[in-house]
Amino acid sequence: MNNLHAKTLDIINLNVTLPNGHRLLRDVSLSLDPGEVRALVGESGAGKSMIGKAVLGILPTGISISQGEILLEGTHLNALTPATRRKTIAQTSALIPQDPLTALNPVRKIGPQITDPLTRIHGWTKARALARTRELLDRVHIRNPDRVLNSYPHELSGGMRQRILIAAAFAPSPRLIVADEPTTALDVTVQKEILRLIRELQRETGTGVLFVTHDMGVVAKISQKVTVLFGGRVVEDAPTHRIFENPEHAYTRALIAATPTPNASTEPFRPVPPALIAELHREIQADDDRFSKRAHR
């Protein structure tokens, strides 16, 4: 089952459904090679975050995987018991969350929040966990690690907290990192720095990254492959250079065109045309009809 040449992540025909049967992801397939960065783009509600949540086993209550397979390093996650699945995910993957202000426990010091998983889940010694944590804090340019390790989250700035969360994600040397819009909640000056850190660490460690974002500018900077989503469906899946040079789908072209540019004052803002969105919704409806026929047969 587990072979050395397996892809880091392989998602096959994934369907994620609300209790009332409404699909949030519709036959999504994508894969991630070791060391590859794949951007998941789309507007709000396109399902890009939902893919990350499904992979990490943190779908909100009531939302479940109704069909499809997720293979993590060649292991079928669906085939595992919940406890083994939790362990498998924790051993191979990590999450860089969207909002650094809510992702750290307000009543616990930073130090144990990073080292606890290393000692209690990965079975490291305290000394090793602490050494690794210091090394990574240094790597994300935190100058006085000992003071930070002894701080509570409210004593640190947002950018500082996001750097800590990046360090925490890379600390156990995961094979896969899901970065869920990690720069959205930060102000623009900090965004660049955070993006650069993720890219550098990713290159050094050879970790595969699923990078969820709605910012086509970010996509161009960080990823090798792109999956464009609309309404929980994959609209286009291609190498990043091709997405920008020669996008196949009209929606991808519209998304790129809608990205604000530095000379926004001279160039008018071009939103995605409503007619195109209506067309996409019609396709989804047809898709759903086929899906329900398939389910009822």
């Binding site: 362990k87 995910i89 924790a90 990590a94 809510t102 992702a103 426990n105």
Partner: peptide
């Protein structure tokens, strides 16, 4: 439902 508890689950805590 807070983000830090979700993160703890991803990190493998029961």
């Amino acid at each position: 439902n807070q983000d830090y508890t979700t993160l703890a689950r991803v990190r493998g805590f029961s």
